[in-house]
């Protein structure tokens, strides 16, 4: 029991660390996701308060229930064709549409979303 509590506590601490991500990174990630010349994710996904989103992909909400961790979410954005060869989603990392750092910021933003 004690170790369980300890473990939960450690987890909570880890979550807190995530919650404390510099707001700047999250804001940056949002901008990158919305920017037509960067992620342009709104072309296909409804996200947050983004205007006139497309509907080719699913709304990007509740991603914590869809992905076990940030790394897995990152994999999807880096190269969606690895998981679905027929996907319409561009391989942002593989084709260097976005840099590794830009993808990380988008991940931070999406992970911060409810």
């Amino acid at each position: 029991m004690k170790s369980f509590l300890l473990a939960s506590f450690a987890l909570l601490a880890a979550c807190a660390a995530i919650a404390e991500l510099p707001q700047e990174r999250v804001n940056d990630g949002k901008q990158l996701a919305f920017d037509r010349n960067k992620g342009n994710c709104l072309a296909c996904h409804a996200i947050d308060d983004g205007e006139s989103p497309g509907n080719i992909g699913p709304p990007l909400a509740a991603l914590k229930t869809r992905f076990k961790d940030k790394a897995q979410l990152r994999d999807q954005i880096f190269d969606a064709t690895r998981f679905n060869p027929e996907t319409s989603m561009p391989p942002f990392g593989r084709n260097r549409i976005l840099t590794a750092d830009e993808i990380d910021r988008i991940v931070d933003y999406l992970w911060s979303q409810p």
Binding site: L42, A43, C44, G54, I56, S88, P90, N95
Partner: peptide, 18 residues
């Protein structure tokens, strides 16, 4: 961006891009 013509005009015809 790794699209085929078919990605947009076959697979996703009728859907919205933005």
């Amino acid at each position: 961006l790794n699209f085929a013509c078919a990605t947009c005009h076959v697979q996703n015809a009728g859907k919205r891009i933005r």
